[in-house]
Amino acid sequence: MERPYMSWNEAKAFMMAAFMKVGVPEKDAAICVDVLLESDRRGIESHGINRFKPFYIDRIIKHIQEPITQIEILKDTPTTAVIDGHNGMGMVIAHTAMKMAITKAKQLGLGMVVVRNSTHFGIAGYYATMATEHGLIGMTGTNARPSIAPTFGVENMLGTNPLTFAIPTDEDFPFVLDAATSITQRGRIEYYARNNQETPAGLVIGRDGTPQTHSKQILTDLVSGKAALTPLGGIGEELAGYKGYGYATVVEILSSALQAGSFLHQLSGVAEDGSNKPIPVGHFFLAINPDFFMGLENLKHTTGEILRQLRASKKAPNHDKIYTAGEKEYLTWLERKDKGVPIGDDLQKEFKQVRDQLKLDFVFSFENRSI
């Protein structure tokens, strides 16, 4: 059964109202909503409005993160900065940090800003493409709640730790590689669980070293430490799982060491008494100005040529198309821009729960009742 669609404007209006009701200032709420909707525009449903209630509204209500974001600049130089987000809204903190990096790169060619004491910031690709909108190369990464086991290990130690790149092209969309350093991320398993689907074998390893596939149980076991995600490449060394493990470690270091931030099990989100506590994640943002090299137009043309030649190369049997990073997301946007955002039964229930809990005067288009 095809899911109904909610218009982008309706989704925006409701989430804006809800964020503001729990204390997020209007300007900050607009940033948060745009990040979430951008994820669904790109078809990355694991990080879009599916996470609106559990990752943001619920955490604010439970005092796990602050609705009002107090950003403190700890160190600022012409090309770098260190900022403390004081457990505010991760999207607002990240947006501020990338804007700073962009400003520095425009002036001096390179800008890097690192963040500590932040919270979940949505899709990393949002901030990398902020740079491409200014004709710059963008890079970003973040650590996260422990969920990846190191190669030859079964304990969840590293976060899914995306390492993200966005590069301008002469095409209608930039090159955007936004991917976790695990085979999959927690959000994908949440999606499987929400749709009563099993997780494919090999994505999650249990404490006994065997693959786990029961999605709802995996979500519980990831928190308790009885299960862990596998790094890119999978279990062991045969398929080069050590490479994903290594890249995840790089992101962990860059998300904590430069800013004297938290890392590994310090990001568990669980206090000694078993209660929930803030998850003080760190991020890094890098902007590169091609005008300080061989120029923006050369970068865009060469990048475009590389992508076109890759897509034009010989196809495998039974495949008639090769994609490059960012292309599928662009095609999803073309398909959804007039339809809106898909909203299944579980998400409809969550939206109604938020509305009723916050006593918002809002009637959804998917409800079978008149205004």
Rank of each mutant, 00 (worst) to 15 (best):
H283L: 14
I64F: 06
T303F: 05
D361C: 07
D273I: 06
D28H: 08
T69M: 11
M294N: 15
R3L: 13
V154A: 04
E252V: 03
G209M: 05
S118M: 11
I137G: 02
I322Q: 12
G244R: 01
A128T: 14
G23A: 07
T303G: 07
I49D: 01
M89C: 11
N289G: 00
K349Q: 14
N195K: 15
F284I: 14
S275F: 02
A260D: 15
L347P: 05
R194T: 15
I61P: 03
G85T: 03
A97R: 06
Q212R: 11
K315F: 09
L229I: 00
G234S: 09
A30T: 14
Q65Y: 01
D40H: 09
H95A: 11
V33L: 11
Q259S: 15
Y56S: 08
A13T: 14
V92D: 04
Q107C: 12
D273Y: 01
Y56M: 12
Y56D: 06
H301G: 11
L239K: 12
K53H: 12
E133P: 03
I148L: 11
F14I: 10
Y245P: 03
I57Q: 05
S255H: 01
I322Y: 07
Y242M: 08
I205G: 03
V113Y: 01
M1W: 10
V33Q: 07
I288F: 07
G282S: 03
V82C: 11
Y245D: 01
M98G: 04
N143W: 02
V24I: 08
Y330W: 15
H47Y: 03
F173R: 13
V82L: 13
Y330G: 09
S262H: 15
Q266W: 04
F173P: 06
L307C: 12
Y242W: 12
G159I: 05
R186D: 13
H301V: 14
A287M: 07
Q348H: 00
L158W: 00
Y127W: 04
D338C: 10
